[in-house]
Simulated scan of single mutants.
Amino acid sequence: MNTFGPPKLVLERGDGARVWDADGNEYLDLLGGIAVNVLGHNHPALVTAIADQATKLVHVSNFFTTPSQVELAERLLGLVGAEGQVFFTNSGTEANEAAFKLTRRTGRTKIVAARDGFHGRSMGALALTWKPAYREPFEPLPGDVEFVPYGDLDALAAAVDDETAAVVLESMQGEAGAIVPPDGYLATARSLTTEHGALLWLDEVQTGVGRTGDWFGYQASGITPDVITVAKGLGGGVPIGACIGVGAAGSLLQPGNHGTTFGGNPLATAAALAVLDTIEKDALLDHAATLGRRLRDAVSGLPHVRDVSGRGLLIGIGLDTEIAAAVHDRSLAAGLILNACGPARLRLAPPFVLTEEQADRAVAILAAVLKETPL
């Protein structure tokens, strides 16, 4: 079905931060499958984990559990640093669907979400997603969702009340182009939801699993949310997501309330464990933070660049005119994969294994493209 438009390339193989198309052309990948391939392509630890698990079990159904499923749930809760329970899914959208249903178990229905936020394309997740072009063709959507400007403390305080089931926010807006909230924003959201007996739900689908230089983007704020949704980088390319319920929120969904056929299957959970192990063993959190600063500093002085945002290896580049699509196409022709996430905004979400030399080469390609792209 023509849901994505014509594909730009037919990609055939990859290695680290590089990919090759079916014609043998090489590209430097600074998008990483949209923040998914945190270990790059063809990482030996991930390949080995998948191959080893495939010789044991691939699927067992949700009537049973497996050692890797239990271990991964424990690891995720350990990274959060709190007691709770985990529901495994196959994607970020599914993780957000589980979280949406979880909020209904509070006995309330009102959700406060952010303008320019993105939470997925299914009917429930879409109800929480701001972009009218995504929403309007499928309305009516599940209701009782109020949108407020992201980062506006007064608007958030005015919207959250004793009827609110949950506030759902990204710790940094990814689809909008790596938009970082002001200092204290997430802490205020935590205070407001606590005051009104609502859940604080943080969507870490793009920002989680080390993308920002912390395991989760919210951790720099020093808070603990009630619900955390993760996916994308968790499996390093193998489909997996998780809805993490912290404390009492982990018990809101009971038998019969929700389900999945493939979620938390042994192949995906083994892959996720390999990703977490490798990030820890190779100190990739520090690398993501350090290399992200290097990239942001390097692109900030390039032609047509108005602003640079982000943390770690999720970076937004604001342009001074609406040339993002042209910059994307010309960069691709020059061997660089990035993302035009708006008419005047680019997004970078490279693998954590990107080297300094590769980062510098990517900046050089982008600089040449921007210099040659007319206003």
Rank of each mutant, 00 (worst) to 15 (best):
L273S: 00
L273H: 01
C243Q: 13
L267E: 02
G256S: 09
L252C: 00
P255S: 11
V246D: 02
G256C: 08
Q254I: 04
A268T: 01
A248I: 01
G263E: 07
A249C: 06
T269L: 03
F262W: 15
A270W: 04
L253P: 06
T261I: 10
G259I: 11
C243I: 11
A248D: 12
N265P: 03
L273K: 04
P255Q: 06
N257W: 10
T260D: 15
H258C: 11
N257M: 14
A272W: 00
H258F: 15
G256M: 07
H258N: 12
L252A: 09
I244G: 01
T269N: 04
L253R: 09
H258R: 13
N257E: 14
N265R: 13
N257D: 15
A242Q: 05
G264C: 08
P266D: 03
T260M: 10
I244D: 00
G247D: 13
A249V: 02
G256V: 08
A272C: 03
L252Y: 12
C243K: 12
G259E: 13
A270D: 05
S251P: 03
T261M: 12
T261E: 15
A270C: 08
T260K: 10
A272S: 14
G247R: 12
N257K: 10
A268V: 00
A248Q: 11
T261P: 06
L253V: 10
G259T: 15
H258A: 13
Q254F: 01
A274F: 01
A272N: 05
Q254D: 01
T260Y: 10
H258T: 14
G247I: 15
G250W: 08
L252D: 05
A248R: 12
L253K: 11
P266L: 08
T260V: 14
L273Y: 00
N265F: 03
S251T: 15
G250P: 07
L253F: 07
A270F: 09
G256I: 07
G250F: 06
N265D: 14
L273G: 00
A272E: 02
G250R: 11
A248G: 02
I244K: 03
P255H: 07
T269G: 01
T261D: 15
C243P: 12
H258K: 10
F262I: 10
A249G: 05
G264N: 09
L252M: 13
L267S: 05
A272G: 06
A242V: 05
S251R: 15
A271G: 02
G247W: 13
H258L: 12
A271C: 06
G247Y: 14
P266V: 01
N257F: 11
A242E: 02
L252V: 05
